[in-house]
Computed example of a mutant assay.
Amino acid sequence: MKLAIAQMCSSNTHAANVATLEALAAEAHAAGADLLALPEAAGLVNKDFVAASQIVRPEADDPFVAACRALASQYGMWIHTGSTPIRLEGEERFRNRGHLIDPQGKILAHYDKIHLFDVDLPGETPRRESDRYVPGEEAVSVPTPWGVFGLSVCYDIRFPHLYRDYARAGASVLLVPSAFALRTGEDHWETLLRARAIENGAYVIAAAQAGHHDDGRQTWGHSLVIDPWGKVLLDMEKRIGLAVLELDMTAVNRARASIPSLANERPYHIRA
């Protein structure tokens, strides 16, 4: 599989991010990519909930999703949208939703971020993703020409059972689009991603946001591609743009044959 992975510094307007997307998709197509992988919040980064509420749309009307579908069809290329906020009927809060789009522009699957980062620390302003988003309830795996893809978003990476369940369901690629904060990014980002790859003998593709965003936040960057043995094949560091590389999908079977933890698993109970 020839992968194009994008590192973005998404804006607080759909139009600016669609323009970036169009350039990225053209570059990915020119490089012969089979799949373009985008980061979390690729379509919109706007922490002002009131302002965002004026522009976030239902999936069918979302301009970023529409642009991804049109470009996938135009270039005959798979696109993973990373995620973008969308609104469901009857819900005031958004869904943090990612889409896998086939080369005909069809949405094959969507995934709503399940795990939301809510934390209250003494002396700090509470940070609660659940104030803005409704959590998803379903893990989603998708058959593709290169094997099964397991879909997730950012904070999900701290919940290893999700990825184990994907591996048990046959996933050979784990998609982890993200917008990691600076402190946790520096200390935890690579370690968590490499652990998920090693534990499950799967490729991890983690497209990320990077830099200073229009809404004032900063993100860590370091989009990573990690092979099933845990080797980092690509680290984009702080660079905005596109990287293209070939993934040898036979590496999944080799890693799982060498460390057959999926086959060696046994049921157990915890004695209290």
Rank of each mutant, 00 (worst) to 15 (best):
M1F: 02
M1D: 02
L3H: 03
H14S: 12
A19Y: 02
T20I: 13
A26Q: 08
E27W: 00
H29L: 05
A30H: 09
G32F: 03
A37V: 14
E40Y: 00
F49R: 12
S53Q: 10
S53D: 15
E59R: 13
D62Y: 03
V65Q: 04
C68A: 13
R69C: 13
S73C: 13
T81W: 02
T81E: 08
I86F: 04
E92S: 10
H99F: 12
Y111D: 09
D112M: 04
D112L: 03
D120S: 11
L121G: 01
E124K: 12
T125H: 08
R128W: 12
E138M: 05
V140W: 00
S141R: 04
F149A: 12
S152W: 07
F159L: 06
F159K: 03
H161M: 14
L162V: 14
Y163I: 08
L174T: 08
T184P: 08
H188K: 12
H188R: 12
H188T: 15
L192D: 12
R194L: 04
I205G: 05
H222S: 05
H222Y: 02
S223F: 06
L224I: 01
D227W: 05
L233R: 03
D235E: 10
E237R: 11
T250A: 13
A251P: 00
A255T: 11
H269P: 00
R271G: 03
R271E: 15
